[in-house]
Design a protein around this nucleic acid. Structure first.
Length: 1023
RNA sequence: GCUCAAGUGGCGGAAUUGGUAGACGCGCUGGAUUCAAAAUCCAGUUCUUCGGAGUGUGGGUUCGAUUCCCACCUUGAGUACCA
């Protein structure tokens, strides 16, 4: 019986679907285990073989955990809002919901054919109103919350209002905007509603703020930094300007410290945690205020700086402000005005990226202004320099050239003094930056102190002066939450008198309106501005979305409502909480029930790409912590363990073609005219015969010659010498083949035109190329055309995308699953090469044969254990159990595939037919190759799915050996092996080894200096 | 520049606490089977002057190092002067 994988796989995929085999229950006696994949964005291109890598790994783990007796939640869904569908809509007018629906169908079909054990009954789609209803709901919760630093958690905004009404804001310790004005309870109660709302907005966890964005007028949209190349848009090359826009922001900075601390409690990869730590960017130091002075008189302006080295304050010899700093224009003296303005103009032309990446160019300008040193009262000159960025810290630096390399370089460049305040430090060549070795000198009351001591002392002194205090700074900035797009979650927000109003939760979801065009409006408003009906109109409990006219003509009495928000939410909104929704995916009353949340709690294993390190994985932790603060979820970190899967790279195929040629005539005395004639003759023969002809890569590989004049080239005579190539035109005209040279070029060939032996199908390739006048290719001695291979990122434009559909047809899903795992460690980047799949496919065929050793290859296992050979088979089985279990728990899936191959090879050699061996072996294999396992399981007589069969238990007693094949090393080099009884002690081993003839041969009469014996391991003879 | 990860046959990779380097698979070579091909099976496949040498390079620790330490080189990823 042959292994008909297509039939078997279709059969079991249907069985699993019909029987809902992998549906998880929210109550169970079993322990829970939640295995999660990062859900995909359903793009139009469908899946390529790189996408399922992580899904296969989680699927193996999920199936393994079911065998181990866990109640496993393994859901899947779609992150279905996103730009590509919107772009497609702009181009074709097709509603993004329709394209998304189509793409999801393709994804689902592709996922199903790989045999994943997803519980599809819990599928979520972020673009589904029943899902984004709750995204909107969470947004409202954020709006109605503020962060209380005293309790260190988010609290309800109504509490804050109470405090304001009873005691004003002076005692409130909240995370809020910088420019908060103090007010008393009386003030607050006297404010009108709009004023009160404005103030509250400065405290809310999601708030409206003016944010600088990269605005591209031509595209009518905001661009990300990497969509801008050399100051113009990547698409279309339109100019981009910095523009202030009012946008929703998320006060993630409130959670900076907790996001940092939380990393200690979760088992995520160290590199990923490090990335998040760097992103949060905590630095401890002090803020210091410098008073601006003019002619020794204190002015009204103060320059605030943050420094991590307050201990070096006596080393300050200048201040540097960002050119954009708001004080620059106010403090610059008339004499310096033109120089400063010129410099500002020059920096404005440089993009922020430019300014940041160029470390070598030092530039700046003196403002003419001075600040007063808080302790010495000496005047300090104030400069501007573009190495200081307005957006970071306060946009001002107290420059200590002896202790900071950039300040040092700046000072050297502009001849600013570099006072040395470090004991014993040499600062003649570079700044002294070693904190640990610092002993402060020339610093008044700090002299002789270490970095730590001096820091403490100086902060205390600054506090006495009222000119500074200890401060912790975070790099993490609040996240902009508005997008000028159509295909995203609408905000549950309308505006009254310019102030945002939340729509009551009972009216959710606020569904996306229909629009005719998905582009911005003519007045530059986001696409939702095109909606005919986008006004909120509410009387009591009755609410509707209406047109502007309808709204304006409605009765104002008892009316609530106004223009709805035109922005939509960003891509990360829906993905910031979806893992909670899977726990109770269809709940209409809550985002998930308390019972479900308390049962599943958190994700036990989360696998996804590392590219989400600072986006999704940070924002989702933030939302989880917020939901935790408000008592909506039971844990404040949602994923216990996280692994990043590496990318699968494509193996591109390159077709080589002959490009140009040359013919050597040197040393031949030929008249110029004749030479030109011969050149033309040569060129015409060549272009007829060889120009742009495809040439087999093995002919030129390694045959490159180097010519001083022409550079690298190939010699035609050498390359084609052995070949049956019609070159007589050259010879008949007196050209010497050995003097003809050529060079080549290469271009991508689609993988479909190349077979697994790297041979090009010339006809397919030509059909694809659609070029006329194709020449005969130059083939190798076997009449084949070889292509060369190169590993690159898998992408459409490189024609190296491998589609899993064809692999499933040709080799089956089980082969695909095994091969994806077999490629290498999960976390590593690795190239895909379809040729290798024959190895795992052959393994499955061999496995199939192992269970079909009956007459005419019919299914057969023997129920009575044979007296002979079972010992060896048991040994194979149990070492496999041990290894596979260890591998799965260490996420080392590649090595288990090898282990399976070794086991099947051994069983085959042992001619093992025993049920006692072959039945448990199937359970081991089932997480990896579930279809074939189910099929053989059924043939073994089971009428239930193998998916919950208990995992075999390892029994070490089967692995006990009576003898050991000792490696005998001389000076650490293994020279031969010697089989000795396991129970030999060191002396017996030594005696046996020394007596061996090969030992004497190695020693050649020398007496060994030392003999190392590790019983059960190794013998090493030194001498 | 900084941070992290990684460098092992023609290729993907294995060697989990320092103990037989190259498991397993691809590819390649030869053979069997076949009219032939595919498929399948068998044998070989790090290099070698057959003594040995060998895990990016150079040192070190050790009886013994792919594994530990130091310095360097290369590649990949992240980050961008964070004051």
């Amino acid at each position: 019986m042959i292994y008909n994988f297509n039939e078997i796989e279709a059969k079991w995929q249907k069985y699993w679907a019909d029987n809902q085999t992998f549906k998880a229950e929210n109550t169970s006696d079993k322990p829970k285990f939640y295995v999660l994949d990062m859900f995909p964005y359903p793009s139009g291109a469908g899946l390529h073989v790189g996408h399922p890598l992580g899904y296969i790994a989680t699927d193996i783990y999920a199936r393994y955990k079911r065998h181990k007796g866990f109640n496993v939640l393994h859901p899947q869904g779609y992150d279905s809002f996103g730009l590509p569908a919107e772009q497609y809509a702009i181009q074709t007018g097709q509603h993004p919901a329709l394209t998304t629906e189509e793409n999801i169908k393709t994804y689902r079909r592709q996922l199903d054919q790989i045999g994943f054990s997803f519980d599809w009954s819990r599928e979520v789609r972020t673009s589904d109103p029943s899902y984004y209803k709750w995204t909107q709901w969470i947004f409202i919760q954020l709006f109605n919350s503020w962060y209380n630093n005293d309790s260190d958690k988010a609290e309800d905004i109504s509490e804050l209002e109470k405090i304001f009404a009873s005691e004003g804001n002076s005692k409130v310790n909240a995370v809020c905007d910088d420019n908060i004005q103090p007010f008393s309870a009386e003030d607050w109660n006297a404010f009108d509603t709009v004023k009160q709302q404005q103030i509250l907005l400065q405290y809310r966890l999601t708030y409206l703020a003016e944010t600088e964005v990269n605005w591209c007028p031509a595209l009518g949209t905001v661009l990300a930094n990497d969509e801008i190349v050399n100051g113009v848009s990547e698409r279309g090359g339109h100019p981009v300007i910095r523009k202030k826009m009012t946008q929703w922001s998320m006060r993630i900075s409130a959670y900076a410290e907790r996001l940092l601390q939380g990393l200690e409690t979760i088992d995520w990869t160290e590199s990923l945690k490090e990335t998040q730590r760097n992103w949060i960017g905590k630095s401890v130091g002090a803020s210091v205020s410098f008073n601006v002075i003019a002619n020794g008189v204190k002015q009204s302006h103060v320059i605030d700086v943050f420094t991590t080295r307050p201990d070096t304050i006596f080393g300050v010899s200048f201040m540097t402000l960002a050119p954009e700093h708001e004080l620059v224009s106010q403090i610059t003296t008339p004499a310096q005005k033109s120089e400063v303005e010129n410099y500002i103009e020059a920096t404005a032309k440089r993009s922020e990226r430019d300014r940041m990446s160029d470390v070598k160019t030092i530039s700046g300008a003196f403002t003419g202004a001075y600040v007063e040193h808080p302790f010495t009262k000496e005047p300090i000159p104030v400069w501007i320099g573009d190495y200081v960025l307005a957006g970071y810290g306060t946009g001002a630096v107290m420059s200590v050239p002896c202790g900071d390399q950039r300040d040092y370089d700046f000072a050297k460049h502009f001849n600013i003094p570099i006072p040395n305040i470090f004991q014993g430090a040499d600062i003649s060549k570079e700044a002294f930056v070693d904190k640990d070795k610092t002993i402060i000198a020339n610093s008044d009351f700090l002299n002789g102190l270490s970095y730590k001591e001096a820091t403490q002392k100086v902060i205390a002194e600054l506090e006495k002066l009222g000119q500074g205090q200890g401060k912790t700074n975070y790099r993490l900035r609040d996240a902009v939450f508005s997008r000028q797009r159509y295909w995203g979650e609408p905000f549950p927000v309308y505006y009254v008198d310019g102030m945002p109003q939340m729509i009551d939760a009972k009216h959710l979801p606020i569904k996306l309106p229909e629009v005719e065009k998905y582009l911005p409006t003519e007045t530059g408003e986001p696409p939702l501005g095109n909606a005919k009906k986008w006004y909120w109109l509410q009387y009591g409990d009755k609410a509707d979305i209406v047109s502007k006219d309808e709204f304006e003509n409605s009765s104002p009495s008892g009316r609530l409502g106004g223009a709805l928000e035109l922005n939509t939410m960003p891509g990360w909104a829906g993905s910031s909480w979806y893992f909670n929704r899977y726990m109770d995916a269809h709940n209409e009353n809550e985002f998930a029930s308390k019972e479900a949340l308390n049962y599943w709690k958190d994700v036990d294993l989360y696998i996804g790409g590392s590219e989400h390190a600072t986006g999704h994985l940070l924002y989702s932790r933030f939302w989880q912590k917020f939901l935790f603060d408000k008592g909506f979820v039971p844990v404040d970190e949602y994923a216990k363990k996280l692994i990043n899967q590496g990318m699968i790279l494509g193996t591109s195929a390159f077709v080589h073609k002959i490009k140009e040629t040359g013919y050597y005539l040197h040393n031949e005395e030929i008249p110029e005219d004749e030479m030109r004639e011969r050149d033309e003759l040569f060129d015409s023969i060549f272009s007829d015969l060889l120009a742009n002809a495809v040439i087999s890569y093995d002919l030129i590989d390694g045959n490159k010659e180097y010519d001083a004049i022409l550079g690298p080239k190939y010699n035609l005579g050498k390359v084609v010498k052995e070949l049956n190539l019609e070159l007589s035109d050259f010879e008949n005209n007196g050209f010497d083949l050995n003097k003809i040279s050529f060079i080549t070029y290469s271009s991508h060939s689609p993988l479909e035109c190349v077979n697994l032996q790297d041979e090009l199908d010339f006809n397919d390739y030509n059909n694809w190329l659609r070029e006329e006048n194709i020449k005969r290719p130059v083939t190798n001695s076997k009449a084949k055309i070889k292509v060369s291979r190169e590993v690159e990122k898998m992408s459409k434009s490189k024609y190296n995308v491998v589609n899993p559909d064809q692999i499933c047809v040709d080799y089956g899903a089980d082969s695909l699953r095994l091969y994806e795992m077999f490629l290498g460690p999960l976390e590593q980047y690795k190239p895909w090469n379809t040729a290798g799949i024959t190895g795992v496919h052959g393994f499955l065929k061999k496995l199939w044969r192992l269970y079909h050793q009956g007459e005419n290859e019919t299914f057969y296992v023997s129920d009575s254990p044979p007296s002979e050979g079972l010992g060896e088979a048991l040994k194979t089985l149990h070492k496999t159990i041990k290894k596979v279990q260890e591998d799965i728990e260490n996420f080392s899936f590649n090595t288990s595939v090898s282990t399976f191959m070794i086991a099947v090879n051994e069983f085959t050699l042992q001619e093992c037919k025993s049920r006692a061996i072959l039945e448990p072996f199937l359970i081991l294999l089932s997480p990896y190759a579930p279809h074939i396992a189910e099929e053989l399981w059924e043939k073994l007589g089971h009428d239930e799915s193998i998916s919950t069969a208990p995992f075999p238990i390892f029994d070490a007693s089967h692995l006990v050996e009576s003898s050991k094949n000792y490696p005998i090393s001389f000076n650490g080099k293994m020279r031969f092996t010697l089989e000795l009884p396991m129970d030999f002690n060191a002396q017996q081993i030594e005696d046996a080894v020394m007596a061996h003839e090969k030992t004497q041969e190695q020693l050649q009469g020398r007496a060994p200096k030392k003999v190392i014996i590790v019983p059960g391991k190794i013998v090493n003879i030194v001498g």
